[in-house]
Design a protein around this nucleic acid. Structure first.
Lengths: 204, 204
DNA sequence: GCTTTCATATGATCACTATCATATGAAACG
DNA sequence: CGTTTCATATGATAGTGATCATATGAAAGC
């Protein structure tokens, strides 16, 4: 009954399973950032991934576990995007590039591919343990990156500056989304970009 | 059947109804800021207000309408709190007082009485029309207030600075909540206060 | 005092949700 | 080729949500 004959787990089967798992996570990551976690149903995610809801619990222990994985995936995606954008740039230029990538109307308008901190920070930090932990990991990764650049341009307190800059960027996208695609919203983003550039010691 | 004899609406009855309406809104405002809009059920709000769920639709057309009213109430509450705090202060001191009121661990830790922009900005800006409109109203009121103070201390672009400062404050609370009540979180708030003070031209 | 009005309560509906039990069908293995 | 394994599908279940229909009981008006 509880014996474990254990014929040893296969590998190629497992690989296929991991692939669909990754697909479900990617799908959920988009949907949750766009509609929120609560508003994103498990069945809807599975359907959008081309599956049915039945197999879900073979992949995840709970919806919260999926959400945590979705947050991790969102940060991984963002991280890749940043890396691609700053490749080969000097620290000051990298900071400027990050600002131009983050504080933009397209980030405001495309929630599904945006930063998990702005999209899910509020909702995810209320629930469970796994979700806030995933957010905190991604946030630390991002502030570390900013702090490295800031240290390289002789900022006196790179970690503190990085945190405050990220706060400003996150808040700007949040507020810009509140205002929608309006002139006031655009102006807020423009003002924030200027403010961040100034703080990063970038003239222009 | 469809005639309207119309004996004229009474007044004192109406006053009582408005009182319970206000109570329901206040209750919802707290609950929604703490748990989010989706996670706050209509029946739960009514129960917490000492009523049953039945009468709800005599007061509000929908849950969204309640949420919009709850957002308005949250801003009204915050506005009163700010007014009380800055009463009689000169512009620079008022700005400093606002920073000390907003970017604090107690704001981070008490979601239910905090700013609606941080608590509900993300979620409410996704849905309907009424909720984002309420948020935008409250936000405009707040940025106007900050801009007035900034103009009085000769900031060259009060509106832009006000927007960027609010963004930083909102983002800081959001990120601090992600980190929970930790040393890193406290440090982020401290760094953000310093950053905001510097921006508002306050030495200290 | 009787009747009408209306704020709130009781109770139901219907959609949808997360979660789980079981079935199926193809790949892996002997 | 037959058997086993397991990833996914089919099909419950049980709860919860918003919303609405109707009942009730007290105050308002005559």
């Amino acid at each position: 009954m509880e014996s474990k004959p254990l014929p040893r787990p296969q590998v190629s089967r497992t690989a296929a399973k991991q692939a669909t798992r990754a697909l479900v996570i990617r799908t959920a990551s988009r949907a949750m950032r766009r509609d929120g976690i609560a508003a994103t149903g498990v069945a809807a995610v599975m359907a959008k991934a081309g599956l049915t809801h039945g197999g879900f619990y073979a992949h995840f222990a709970s919806k919260d576990a999926l959400a945590a994985a979705a947050i991790d995936a969102a940060f991984a995606e963002s991280s890749r995007r940043i890396a691609r954008r700053v490749e080969g740039l000097a620290p000051a230029a990298a900071l400027a590039a990050w600002i131009e990538l983050y504080v933009t109307t397209s980030h405001r308008d495309d929630r599904s591919r945006g930063c998990a901190l702005t999209a899910l920070g509020s909702e995810a930090s209320r629930g469970g343990d796994a979700m806030p932990a995933a957010l905190a990991r991604g946030m630390a990764q991002l502030t570390d990156r900013l702090a490295d650049w800031l240290a390289a341009i002789d900022d006196p307190a790179p970690a503190a500056t990085a945190g405050a800059m990220l706060a400003e960027a996150v808040g700007a996208i949040t507020l810009a989304r509140v205002l929608g695609a309006t002139a006031a919203s655009d102006a807020l983003l423009t003002a924030t970009r200027a403010s961040l550039r100034r703080r990063a010691g970038i003239p222009a």
